[in-house]
Amino acid sequence: MTTSPGDRIAAELDEAGRPAPDVVVQPDADTLARAVAEALVARLAAAQAVHGTASVVLTGGGVGIAVLEHVAGLAAEPVREVVDWSAVEVWWGDERYVPAASDERNEKQARDALLARVGVTDARVHAMPASDAGFGSPEEAAEDYAAELAELAADGEEVPRFDVLLLGMGPEGHTASIFPDSPAATDVRPVFAVRDCPKPPPTRISLGFSAINTAEEVWVIAAGEGKAEAVARALGGADAVDIPAAGVHGRRATRWLLDAAAASKLPAPPG
Results as ranks from 00 to 15, higher is better:
His51Ala: 15
Arg96Ile: 08
Leu257Phe: 09
Asp7Cys: 07
Trp219Gln: 06
Leu257Asp: 09
Ala223Gly: 13
Ala232Val: 05
Pro27Ala: 14
Gly237Gln: 12
Val248Tyr: 02
His51Trp: 13
Trp92Gln: 14
Gly173Asn: 02
Ala76Gly: 14
Ala66Cys: 02
Val79Arg: 10
Lys227Gln: 00
Val36Met: 04
Asp181Trp: 12
Ser264Tyr: 07
Gly236Val: 11
Ala142Asp: 05
Ile65Phe: 09
Met1Val: 14
Trp219Thr: 07
Leu13Phe: 09
Ala184Gly: 09
Ala29His: 07
Pro190Ile: 14
Gly237Ile: 15
Gly52Arg: 06
Phe209Thr: 05
Gln26Trp: 11
Asp28Trp: 12
Asp144His: 13
Pro171Ser: 08
Glu104Pro: 00
Glu140Ile: 08
Pro198Val: 05
Pro5Asp: 07
Arg161Met: 10
Glu15Trp: 08
Thr254Val: 08
Gly60Leu: 06
Ala211Glu: 11
Asp132Asn: 04
Pro129Trp: 05
Ala141Ser: 04
Val67Gln: 03
Ala246Tyr: 00
Gly170Ala: 02
Ala230Cys: 02
Ala113Arg: 08
Pro183Val: 10
Thr2Ser: 14
Pro270Phe: 07
Pro198Lys: 08
Glu38Asp: 12
Ser206Phe: 10
Leu165Gly: 00
Thr254Glu: 07
Pro201Tyr: 15
Val41Ile: 12
Met128Leu: 14
Phe179Trp: 11
Phe179Asp: 01
Asp7Met: 02
Pro180Ala: 09
Thr254Phe: 13
Ser102Ile: 08
Ala153Trp: 12
Asp94Met: 02
Val125Gln: 09
Ala260Pro: 00
